[in-house]
Computed example of a mutant assay.
Amino acid sequence: MGLKENIKQLAKEYANDYVAVRRYLHSRPELSFKEYKTGAFVKTQLLAIGIDAIETVAGTGLLASIEGKKNGKTILLRADMDALPIHEKNKVSYASQNEGVMHACGHDVHMTSLLLTARILFELRTEFSGTIKLLFQPGEELMPGGATLVMKEPAYKALGEVAHVGQHVMPSLPVGTVGFRGGQFMASMDEIYLTVKGKGGHAAVPEECIDPILIASHIIVAAQQLVSRMASPKTASVLSFGKIIGDGANNVIPDEVTIEGTFRTFDENWRTEAIEKLTKLVTAIADGMGGECIVAIPKGYPHLRNDMALTETMKNSAKGYLGASQVVDLAPWMAAEDFAFYTQKSQGCFYLLGVGNENKGITSGLHTPTFDIDEAALEIGGGLMAWLAVEALL
């Protein structure tokens, strides 16, 4: 029996064990940089497999190693660990036990798949050469991103230039399929915080006030020029505002309004230019209307750029493992991922794992309170990543 067949057999044999692991993790989610119990559980799982070369990174993260039969290349496999501040609405036995916290982005699946991958690879370690690093990374969902902290760790720096591989669940892809895209894949992400200051008062005497709600309205509408008139039509950009707070009343004009949003693109030069233009635009509008706009745009995640050669190799490896019909080409995705930091420095391949199943009603999107997966994806996710890793070490 060949190595690929061994991997498939072990993935199938151990899959049910990891359904239980996934459900345990799903029911006990922890927020970004607070993954203390999650990290402890993952470490226990690694030790039970027989993997004891484990280092703590970025506070709650883990970096473990599997050594092959002899020296060779090194590859890093990454899973994120944190959950989101979302109240779960799924009526399942493994629903979140932590009020207001939920694995709504599939990080429980990512950890579980990597643990299954680890078990397979450790059992087959005499059948390949090289080193496989297993990174369980905290804080993907919260700036500055756990990746930035991991990259400062001595244990990570000691790796040098190694290929990085990660997968992300995707409910719009049916279970059994995976998707790849070389080059620019996911967008940069910068968070926008605007505070519009005016002069509050009674709504019946607007001439005595400087209305920050009106100013904020003009700012939101005018800011869309950033994409519609200032960006090249060839450059993908998204500017969205998702939160506005003006704490007045039906007859009270407030003193200030806060606005929160996000800006995303694939062009790092345009990213810098756009933020400068936005800052000038919103401050000028507020000033022209007698108010003030305080702008805070902390630098977020860069765009995620998959290495073309590595991604093509892994796509072909996936076809060999799953069948060509189960591997799809992906369009650019305007979501953001802190895995992007790794791809700015090293070869990277970040791909999507199908977890949806319309027949079972598993269709809810990421970051929703009813997100769930077809757990048949765990066998595929764990086995495929093991195969991609050993193929890359050849």
Rank of each mutant, 00 (worst) to 15 (best):
A118I: 07
K197V: 15
M81S: 10
L114W: 04
E337D: 14
G100P: 02
E391N: 14
L239V: 11
G139T: 06
P29K: 11
K152N: 12
W387C: 09
T126K: 13
I380G: 02
T235R: 12
A163E: 06
N6E: 15
G176S: 10
Y342L: 11
F128S: 04
S96D: 05
L3R: 02
K91G: 00
L159I: 11
A231V: 07
S93V: 13
F266G: 08
F180N: 08
G198L: 12
L378D: 00
M186C: 11
C105Q: 10
G183W: 08
T283E: 13
E207M: 13
V227G: 01
K133W: 12
G176E: 04
F136H: 10
N6S: 15
E153K: 10
I120V: 14
V175L: 06
S129Q: 07
T272D: 06
E161Q: 14
I297R: 03
H303R: 06
V21G: 02
P212M: 10
F266R: 08
Q45H: 14
V282K: 05
A274P: 01
C209A: 14
L47G: 15
K199T: 13
A15K: 10
K133R: 15
A163D: 09
T272C: 07
Y94H: 13
A386L: 04
D80G: 06
T56H: 05
Q137N: 10
S27A: 15
M230A: 07
A377F: 02
A223K: 05
V57K: 09
E13A: 15
N357E: 11
R229A: 13
L25P: 00
F350D: 01
L62C: 05
N306I: 09
L116Y: 00
A324C: 09
T131P: 00
D338Y: 07
Q326W: 01
A222R: 06
I7N: 05
A20K: 15
T38Q: 04
E123P: 03
G176Q: 06
D267C: 13
D374I: 10
M81A: 08
I259D: 02
K69L: 12
E13H: 11
H202G: 06
G242W: 09
Y156L: 13
P332R: 15
G365W: 03
A187L: 07
A284C: 08
I297H: 02
L114K: 06
T126E: 15
F122G: 03
S129W: 00
V57A: 10
I259N: 03
F339H: 02
K315V: 08
H367P: 03
L214K: 00
S65A: 14
P171Q: 05
G356E: 01
K70I: 10
M308P: 00
L194R: 02
A203W: 01
S27D: 07
L310V: 08
V165C: 04
I54H: 04
P174M: 14
L76K: 00
K4C: 13
P254T: 08
G290E: 08
A336T: 04
V221H: 01
M151C: 11
I253A: 04
V196L: 12
E358N: 09
K234C: 01
A104M: 08
V162L: 04
G201L: 12
H26Q: 14
V196Y: 07
I51R: 05
P138A: 12
M385A: 05
P174N: 13
S96F: 05
Y156G: 02
R305D: 09
W270M: 10
G201C: 10
M143E: 05
V92N: 03
H26C: 11
G365R: 13
M111V: 13
F266W: 07
I253D: 01
A392S: 14
H168Q: 12
